[in-house]
Simulated scan of single mutants.
Amino acid sequence: MPVPAPVLYPPFNIVRLSHVEYRVTDLDRSRAFYVDTLGLQITHEEPGLLMLRAMEERGHHCIILREAKAADVAVLGFKLFDQPDLERAAAFFAGKGLPVDWVERPFQGRTLLTRDPWGIPLEFYVKMDRLEPIHQSYKLYSGVRPLRIDHFNMFASDVDAAVAFYNEMGFRVTEYTEDAETGRIWAAWMHRKGGVHDVAFTNGRGPRLHHSAFWVPTPLNIIDLLDLMSTTGWVDNIERGPGRHGISNAFFLYIRDPDGHRIEIYCSDYQTVDPDLEPIKWDLKDPQRQTLWGAPAPRSWFEEGSLFDGADVAEPVLKAQPIVAP
């Protein structure tokens, strides 16, 4: 299927991705990973719950860690432009026969909770409590010096259908991978905020969350994190990288938290603000697609992901196989 033309005047205006809530089985261990090792800042703490932000963020939180018996993903959050967009979003999802619930969230204004057609839990809001800036509080910088949350990547059982639905909401395709034999999309990167992506979809058993990503200042921050993780008991949590993607041109590292949730540390991609920017197409068998330097990803990167609460996982429609590291 061809990549759909961008919807420049969507039914409601999504500004950007905002936050993710992870359920974790050992909050103290997760705190050691996200706060003590990565360097995210605590904005709220209570028994069984941590809320965190990165260094450039003024919104109250970008990650919620909630202790639970089993690890999964409770919700992905997005910020809307203005209050009327909340009503328009509710009408859009209701018109698709999808759930519409108004929920109370701490430190957040009126919030719409819904799901996409595959069951991914999504929430939309306009106002979140603003905090004082800390981007020049350099004494707080530690770990990998995370500046902001950048994107979500999801496994999708039908990437073409996922791209069509999120395109209708105004996400624009920047780059995509096509399976030459079928003409179907194997993966796609889609944005709202003017980077390479706010959301991405990768062919696989889905829906599952492949990873959440954080933007850092330079590749040297990633090297520093690798040195830190390898000497503080986290070496086995390093999954892939460092390297440079062909897609997005980003310098990357993939790591796993104590429950296996995958986190990408990421920098050096490019702006995609122009509404008429043409998507870049990659062939699935191009070895530089995954890593510009040619190294393929490990099998775990294609097969393992985090379950979404309440979503049933289906096998992928497309059976094409990428290059996998031996």
Rank of each mutant, 00 (worst) to 15 (best):
V313R: 05
W102Q: 05
K281C: 13
M55F: 14
M128K: 07
A68T: 00
W301E: 08
E264M: 02
L52I: 01
K285S: 11
F251V: 13
L140A: 14
G95H: 11
T177N: 08
S142M: 08
R66P: 06
I120G: 09
M190V: 01
R58Y: 01
F92A: 06
G204A: 03
V324T: 03
T272G: 00
E46M: 12
A94D: 15
V324W: 00
R130W: 10
R244E: 12
S157H: 15
P146A: 14
R88T: 01
R205K: 15
Y176Q: 00
Q136F: 15
Y125Q: 10
E104K: 15
A71C: 06
Y22M: 11
A325T: 07
G241V: 02
A325E: 12
V144D: 10
K79T: 14
L52R: 00
A70Q: 13
R148Q: 13
G206L: 08
L228Y: 11
P47D: 08
D259M: 00
E303H: 11
V313M: 12
D26H: 06
D160E: 02
A91I: 07
N13W: 03
T174K: 01
F302M: 09
P117E: 05
F155V: 13
P6H: 00
G95R: 09
G260R: 02
Y166I: 02
N167W: 00
L220S: 10
V7Q: 14
M169E: 06
I223E: 12
R66C: 09
E278V: 08
A161Q: 14
E87L: 11
P219K: 06
L49W: 04
F165N: 08
K281Q: 15
P121H: 03
R110H: 10
G243K: 04
I64A: 15
S230W: 07
D28K: 14
D259N: 00
G294P: 06
C267M: 13
A161S: 11
V313N: 10
F308C: 01
I63Q: 09
N153A: 14
V100R: 04
P298S: 04
L292Q: 13
D26I: 06
L80I: 02
E175Y: 05
K319M: 12
Y266L: 15
N13M: 05
A74D: 12
P275D: 00
A297H: 09
V313S: 07
E181F: 13
I222G: 02
R148M: 09
N167A: 05
P287R: 03
I64G: 15
K139R: 12
V24N: 05
D28V: 14
N237I: 08
T43E: 10
R289E: 14
D224R: 15
R256S: 12
R88S: 05
G183R: 12
C62F: 03
W189Q: 07
E87R: 12
T177G: 10
P316F: 00
R184W: 04
F33C: 07
I134W: 04
V75L: 08
G206A: 11
M229R: 13
P258C: 02
W301Y: 10
Y254R: 02
F251N: 11
F171S: 03
F165W: 10
H210I: 04
T232I: 03
L226Y: 06
G170V: 05
E21I: 09
E303K: 12
F302D: 08
L50M: 05
W301N: 01
P258D: 00
L284M: 02
N237H: 15
L112Y: 00
D116G: 07
D227N: 13
L112K: 02
P117N: 06
R208P: 03
G204K: 05
H245G: 11
G233M: 08
S300Y: 08
